[in-house]
Design a protein around this nucleic acid. Structure first.
Lengths: 342, 342
DNA sequence: TTGTACGCGTTATCAC
DNA sequence: GTGATAACGCGTACAA
């Protein structure tokens, strides 16, 4: 049997049922009164032909595809995949399907993907961790005027776009205060080089020292290339081993910008026989599964990743249904500190 | 500004450029000779209007959407997300976009998703870990006759569908032989209750004992509920603690059906002060990042997850381009044993 | 090299 | 309740 075995169309059904295509359409959509007997005939014909409406044709005339685009810098990343899951779960339930696009963290790819999504007439676009460059250039504000757009995290200062944001600032502060309460005196921050969220955390970190009754030293801010993957673990480990060997008065607590970094610090401590949390407290960020797998289990700031996605999806569907309204909203999703063994 | 600011169409361009829509179409697709001057005029008009062809309309007439569907039982799963990444990478490059559908491992959802993808006229469908029920019932063979279909893993005995399969059998055997070479005498298998791949591994396991010069005991096959997530770690850990306490002559090597199980076994060993790998060797399955994060790092069977996805995507594009050909192929992706510290 | 006219499969409009 | 017929935006015979 050949695959080009054409699908039957609404007019095939009409012919078989002996009615007009208009009537068939009405039966399918159940939006106008149709005689019960006629309806029966049509339904039988539909059954018999295995007819399924072609959504492409429907979309063309209705200018609605029940489709959204989801952009992410990385698919396999533990954080993003949870967010995607959240989006997908909510949106599928509302009968939308989603195009998943991997931008690999590249600003141009990001724009190219959005372009292709626009050509495909998606009803809306959700971007996870949009590139700062595309936000500041006004690109996203332009897109936001053309169709529903929701950005998850990213630079949002004075940007007229819908955002769903993690409350990183509060989370960071809460972690630092916890260290302080534990009597830690030399609290450090382990961060990567370039990312909006790293900068945000560092800002809170510096502010914290200004408020707290603690002596600040520039060496408390430790840099590694950054990222959110396996490599990050080793980068962090090596950096910290070097750090502890060289530093005369090293930190007794370290806040890490993500869980992979925290694992690296933990491994470094083990290698150097540093007691955790007695000599060194560690708190990670994100509450990904890696923080629960290590022994001792890592304390971390929970981002409620899945909820982040659900919130964005909810906002997305709202925007689509709103029609022309130009409401802009920035929604914060709270974080909370999860204390485990470190 | 309103969002319903209509997109300009090919006929807007034609009007502005003072030519027919046919000519515009030819310029866009570059498939027929057009006078250089005319082309210039058209391109200017396109630029001026910000015209982008509506792919929906194009798809409707060409019966090709440059779209594929990807089904997965779970998005955040470490294994699947790597496979998805592989698919996406290859396919995006060929200018396809993919609908990602989460079936949550539910056979009915799986069918419902496929139904919706058919309505959306996708050019092909890739299913990761398809439910055995839908394979055995002949459902997938039916789908495979209607459009290009590639199944990744799953029950494939005598099924007329295109498959891309991990060579689990060889991987299992290789791991078991490694244990044997290490002089291990009581090799165990830790598995979940229901999954085609668990059964497959158990079969190889039993066959191995028949061939090897080792005494088999039914207690060497250890069951936990199974799964591939954080919970699995604790299930495995608790089960193994109980096992080692109760068993007089416990295993000295354990092959685990996935990495999470292996982490659980490792944690159990630590809790009971069992030396790894001296008293107990552990090998996991999948080479997910968790096997590289633990200390000691886990030995594991690498599935080349990303390659699995790329291979499936390659086959998919082949099938789409082949047209009506009815070739069925089952492609095995080799595994290999990665020896680390356990 | 260019244009006319039809068709893709559906929904919307209007008349009966 | 029902049915012609015009849209939706594009590609493509066929004609010129």
């Amino acid at each position: 049997m050949s695959k080009s075995n054409k699908r039957s169309t609404i007019s095939d059904v009409a012919k078989l049922a002996g009615v007009s295509i208009t009537t068939v359409s009405r039966v399918i959509n159940d939006n106008y009164p149709v005689n019960v007997v006629t309806k029966k005939k049509v339904n039988t014909a539909i059954e018999q032909l295995g007819f399924r409406p072609n959504l492409l044709a429907r979309s063309l005339i209705q200018d609605k595809t029940q489709t959204i685009g989801v952009l992410t810098p990385s698919i396999e990343n533990l954080f993003f995949s949870e967010v995607i899951k959240g989006i997908d779960t909510y949106v599928n339930d509302k009968d939308y399907r989603s195009f998943l696009c991997n931008t690999k963290g590249n600003p141009e790819t990001e724009r190219a993907m959005i372009d292709s999504l626009l050509n495909r007439s998606v009803d809306g676009i959700v971007v996870i961790d949009p590139r700062t460059q595309n936000i500041k250039s006004g690109y996203y504000e332009g897109i936001s005027k053309r169709l529903p757009l929701v950005l998850i995290n990213g630079f949002d200062q004075g940007i007229m776009c819908n955002f769903v944001l993690n409350d990183d600032m509060t989370g960071t502060l809460e972690a630092l205060r916890h260290f302080e309460e534990q009597g830690k005196k030399r609290i450090g921050l382990l961060r990567g080089f370039t990312s909006h969220s790293y900068d945000l955390k560092e800002k809170v970190f510096r502010d914290f020292y200004r408020m707290a009754n603690l002596a600040f030293d520039e060496s408390y801010i430790i840099h590694i290339p950054g990222g959110n993957s396996l490599e990050t673990v080793n980068q962090a480990k090596e950096k910290m081993i070097q750090y502890f060997r060289e530093e005369e008065n090293p930190c007794d607590a370290i806040l890490c910008c993500n869980d992979f970094m925290a694992v690296g610090v933990l491994n470094a401590a083990r290698a150097l026989n540093i007691q955790v949390p007695k000599q060194l407290s560690i708190i990670g960020f994100d509450n990904t599964l890696v923080s629960q797998i290590t022994e001792p289990a890592l304390s971390t700031v929970d981002h409620h990743m899945s909820e982040l996605g659900i919130t964005a999806a909810t906002r997305m569907v709202e925007l689509i249904n709103e029609g022309n309204n130009e409401t802009i909203r920035k929604i914060s999703v709270m974080t909370n500190l999860i204390l485990r063994d470190t």
